[in-house]
């Protein structure tokens, strides 16, 4: 009889014992960060791949089902996911990840954002009122997010709080060391002018002291148009740049056209973890970016 009770108790307790911390990461960079900070025990669901445009995700049933059982969501915030995340979170009815709950972690809330628009008008394209949300290409900001995520994990899962804080501190230290050595490698690039496809490299430019020589998109989110490209070409003739930066996600044709017209090199940079084969994790992402920038502008 006692054995039966014990067996039953084990059966009932088993799901709880096996249920690890479950993290829902909106983009690949946050899945990678969560893997570093939450450790091997956590189950991490990555909602979008590096091939997906985070602006255009839909509140798919598969994502709602994952949010239903998540204990923490880690996303960019600053309205990057405004087209789907608020709806998906609401439909998942999971109190743990509702806005305001500790399980609702937005990376953009933990760092200072750039390009906060002075005026809000959709005639300006797809603008984000709180600032540019593509923060992941700056290791300094990523280190801050890592520390904040460690604190947040400690709140969500107090039993392992020390582990989370330790891993977050270790990873932030690793990032800072890497950042400093990459800054030394890239010191020759300081002040270099580069054309971008989409306004997603602001934080990289801020970190390495690069300068934007214009964007292929006339306004954020709008596809490049011939007239705008011609004007850009004329500007570049007057004030030369050193290359054209695009992510593997962006349509290659406008960059190729401008490269043919101006003789500038096209530099393909990973915008997130997994965007190019060499960007296997966050440290590799920053390494790959600097390496490709140096190779491209040589």
């Amino acid at each position: 009889m006692k054995r039966w009770i014990l067996a039953m108790a084990l059966l009932v307790a088993a799901p709880q014992a096996g249920a690890e911390l479950k993290v829902f990461a909106c983009e690949p960079e946050w899945a990678a960060l969560a893997r570093e900070v939450a450790g091997p025990q956590a189950e991490i669901f990555q909602a979008t791949t590096a091939r997906e445009d985070p602006h255009l995700v839909q509140a798919r049933p598969a994502l709602i089902a994952q949010l239903r059982t998540a204990s923490l969501l880690v996303c960019s915030g600053a309205d990057l996911e405004a087209g789907w995340l608020p709806l998906a979170v609401r439909q998942a009815r999971n109190p743990a990840v509702q806005p305001g709950a500790p399980g609702h972690f937005l990376a953009a809330d933990t760092v200072r954002l750039l390009e906060v628009p002075a005026t809000l008008d959709r005639a300006q394209g797809d603008v984000h009122p709180q600032g540019n949300p593509h923060i992941q290409t700056d290791p300094r900001r990523m280190a801050l997010v890592a520390t904040a995520l460690g604190e947040r994990l400690a709140t969500v899962d107090p039993a392992n709080a020390d582990d989370y804080r330790r891993r977050a501190a270790d990873f932030a230290r690793r990032l800072r060391t890497l950042q400093l050595s990459l800054e030394v490698q890239a010191r020759g690039l300081r002040g270099a002018r580069l054309v971008v496809h989409h306004a997603e490299w602001v934080y990289l430019f801020d970190w390495l002291g690069l300068q934007s020589a214009g964007a292929l998109e006339p306004k954020p989110g709008l596809p490049p148009a011939a007239g705008h490209l011609a004007a850009l070409k004329a500007e570049l003739a007057a004030q030369p740049a050193r290359g054209i930066v695009r992510s593997p996600l962006a349509d290659p044709k406008p960059a190729q056209w401008l490269a043919r017209e101006t003789g500038l090199p096209v530099i393909e940079l990973p915008h997130t973890v997994g965007a190019t084969p060499d960007a296997v994790d966050l440290p590799a992402l920053y390494g790959a970016i600097v390496e490709r920038l140096l190779a491209g502008t040589r």
């Binding site: 600053a78 608020p86 760092v111 801050l144 002291g209």
Partner: peptide
């Protein structure tokens, strides 16, 4: 100077901005 490196404090969250949790 636009070329000057940003001060380290510049990457931390701006204190004056309101919480950005809701849309």
């Amino acid at each position: 100077d636009p070329v000057a490196p940003p001060a380290a404090a510049d990457v931390a969250a701006a204190p004056a901005t309101p919480p950005r949790a809701t849309d």
